[in-house]
Design a protein around this nucleic acid. Structure first.
Length: 159
DNA sequence: GCCAACGTTGGC
DNA sequence: GCCAACGTTGGC
């Protein structure tokens, strides 16, 4: 068994729905990343994301749009319980406990950036021009980032 | 609120 | 399998 290298990710959330502050307020600053209903993102949550991986927490939709904090994955992919609950918004009648369709990971807030690194800045930064986030048509709410991209954003937050 | 870019659904 | 219609994401 070869040990897989830690990987880095970016996850989007609308702050009006679930913000970085909301995550910090959770017990142990930890929450399920639920409600992902896109198969590409699902595959990442189920198959690729591992305990110890780093996550950039991104606020979408509401200004200021950008990366606000850093998290750590503390539990790898398991079935999203909201898909089984008919009272929930994320209920999926096509899913069953035997054959779950959607997955979550648990993330723990690690460090709020000293300031938000905005989408506008990310777009302007030459070192970040290959980020999936700024590729045309790219809307994945869970996406891989390189170590260099991750570290660059943290550096920018300190400037 | 608008709309571009995708993703999903369902008839055929 | 094709593709039109519809739904969603997410920046502006």
């Amino acid at each position: 068994m070869t040990r897989q290298k830690r990987r880095d990710w970016l996850m989007k959330s609308e702050p009006s729905v679930f913000s970085y502050d909301d995550l910090v307020k959770e017990p142990d600053s930890t929450a399920m990343w639920d409600g992902v209903r896109n198969y590409q993102a699902r595959n990442l949550l189920r198959d690729e994301i591992r305990v110890g991986d780093r996550v950039l927490f991104y606020h979408s939709n509401d200004a200021p749009i950008g990366v606000v904090g850093v998290c750590r994955v503390v539990r790898a992919g398991y079935p999203d319980p909201t898909q089984f609950d008919s009272t929930q918004k994320y209920y999926d009648p096509r899913s069953s406990k035997e054959k779950p369709r959607w997955y979550v990971v648990d993330v723990k807030a690690q460090k709020r950036l000293s300031r938000i690194v905005t989408l506008a800045e990310i777009k302007e930064d030459e070192e970040l021009s290959d980020m999936k986030l700024v590729q045309k048509g790219q809307r994945l709410s869970v996406q891989p980032v390189t170590e260099a991209e991750f570290d660059r954003i943290v550096v920018m937050s300190k400037q």
